[in-house]
Amino acid sequence: MFKWIHRFGSPPFVYRLSGRIAPVLGVLCLILMLTGLYLGLVVAPADYEQGDSYRIIFVHVPAAWMSMFVYVVMAVSSAIFLIWKMKLADIVAQASAPIGASFTFIALMSGSLWGKPMWGTWWVWDARLTSELLLLFLYLGYIALRNAIEHPQLAARTAAILAVVGVVNIPIIHFSVDWWNTLHQPATITKFDKPSMHPSMLKPLLIMVVAFQLLYFYNLLVRVRSGILQREKRAAWVAKELEN
């Protein structure tokens, strides 16, 4: 068991494995993304209240969900890095930050474009929108910290502490619509409840969620491979790996 975990801490093993898995994830993601777009934009009917504007949900919800998921991955791997000094965990956290920031930006941007026609405003300082904006700043802060500190090890540790502490914001984002009065509506899909969405609309939404998830893992693996190469370029295994 420990040997098995140990292999996932070994850069050559992870480098080769991710090189093999990434293309598969990429192709699967592309297929699902195109299917989801077709079902969501063409096949799914208009909403009884919001007409066609609700279709923004097919990019908004997957991006918002991923913005939180990626942050949790970043925080957990940062904690692993801080406690066990595992270099690979730091690479994963560093690779996740720009991807998470993009998902957060997409969630805010698409939400704004949805809010204008439906709510009547691009932006309102309610608990959900504000905490999601804070998430974007956490991602940007993490990236900025890493770039601002010259000493790489110190930069990694400082940024990791920010990532770990910032995880407090995640439950706030999730429960903001229940804890406070907000303009934002409560979640459509919850674990314990039956989703309050018609199956013809729910199916493309779920497909898009899976596609976004695959896109993250694909992108993560590619970026982790670059991270490994950058840090291990002096290692003998890299030279050997690149020869063939």
């Binding site: 009917p45 909403d47 009547g120 303009l183 509506q185 309050s196 969405m197 018609h198 013809s200």
Partner: peptide
């Protein structure tokens, strides 16, 4: 200023 709140239910007309 008047803003509309909508619910979390989505279905065809």
């Amino acid at each position: 200023e008047v803003l509309a709140k909508h619910d979390e239910n989505y279905m065809p007309p």
